[in-house]
Design a protein around this nucleic acid. Structure first.
Lengths: 215, 215
DNA sequence: GGCGTTTTCAAACAAATGTTTCCAACCACA
DNA sequence: TGTGGTTGGAAACATTTGTTTGAAAACGCC
């Protein structure tokens, strides 16, 4: 798995097409023809279509994981000094910042969110297991910090609420263009990703602080 | 499209398999063999696989649309008598109740949510058009009632929050199996769809009542 | 320049897919 | 009972899928 040109051209194209149509609906011939690469190149460089899908994910998750670990290191160190617990807002803020930092390409955030959504909803399979086994520790670390920031929540409740929130983020960011068009047409204001996350923040915090069901 | 036995057996099986694996990953042979029906029966009764998917979808959305209209009629009539505005909680409660009432089979809700997610993610753009043209009036009616229930929110803010919430619902319900597996593995409790919506309710209400961004 | 390795390429492969065909079985109605 | 339209069924159809092959081309290095 060497020579960058062909490999990255495959990755770039695959990432876009996967996001547009999904994994099963995107054939290797779609990818290779659009990338102007021989069909066999995928199997030569990646081994299989499955591995290609994982490679597309790895290209995002690797830098994200590294940066997020560093950001959490810093956050923990800062609060370790004065012995205070890290508040939820700061955790969410740190994650949002890291998510926004990572993408090198312009719409790669949108693409990655869509891929993440697909990974979850195309339930059965290798992808979720791969992500969990490869990058599970970052997320475990994050959720553990969230646990300490919200000690009043039962573990299961926190789990579900975090996934409710994940759904909001994935849905709005992956469908960003469509939603933004509707919003612009109906309300005449075009929001940026930063503004959107600004709108998301108070909603997410309120969601986590909602009363327990049955009250 | 007559004789109920074969047709409904196909619909029932397709619905379950679509929910488990997704649409592209479910072949007609998977469906027909499990339904103990001849392979050609699908094309005979429905015309094509795409039409089958729409038929599965329509079987849910048609009764939902009708019931939801009736429920909103009743809700509006009740509040028209004493001149009070319909509170947000009641609107959400009505929708949740209708959503849960409809499915005859266990998995049709999941299928519906998955389709809805696909329709929005623009991957299958024609689906959103189909939904909008066929059943758009119900949703317009609902959002108008939500508008009256939350007069303090600017229109754009309400728009975005409703879609944040829609994302939560679609994500958790369409990826239900995956999430449920994780939750069961980690916390040892297997939640029902009813319980999940029960957990969703207070979170959604809090999300709608969150303070405006910038405070 | 020559040689071993890596990469590209066209072609073929086997398997799986949605769809169609053609005929038998069925069923209502005369 | 016979007849015409509807449904069921086995097989074949044409495509499309991911993958493999074997040879040509490009490359790196002594």
């Amino acid at each position: 798995m060497a020579q960058p040109d062909t490999v990255t051209r495959i990755l770039d194209t695959a990432e876009v097409l996967f996001a547009e149509r999904g994994f099963a609906e995107t054939s290797l011939r779609n990818i290779t023809s659009k990338a102007k690469v021989n069909l066999a190149a995928v199997n030569y460089h990646f081994g299989s279509k499955k591995s290609l899908i994982q490679a597309v994910f790895a290209r995002y998750l690797e830098p994200f994981s590294e940066r997020f670990h560093r950001a959490l290191d810093e956050l923990e160190a800062r609060h370790a000094r004065d012995g205070s617990e890290i508040p939820l807002e700061e955790l969410l803020e740190t994650m949002a910042r890291t998510v926004l930092e990572v993408p090198a390409e312009r719409d790669s955030l949108k693409v990655f969110m869509r891929l993440l959504g697909l990974a979850y909803s195309q339930a059965q399979g290798h992808l979720r297991g791969y992500i969990q086994s490869e990058y599970g520790d970052v997320f475990s670390r994050f959720t553990e910090l969230v646990r300490r920031a919200t000690p009043e929540l039962p573990d299961a409740e926190r789990f579900w609420r975090l996934h409710f929130i994940l759904g909001s983020v994935i849905f709005t960011l992956s469908g960003l263009d469509a939603l933004r068009d509707i919003a612009e047409h109906d309300y005449g204001e075009r929001v940026s990703v930063h503004e959107l996350i600004g709108r998301l923040r108070p909603v997410v915090v309120s969601a986590m602080q909602a009363p327990m069901p049955g009250a």
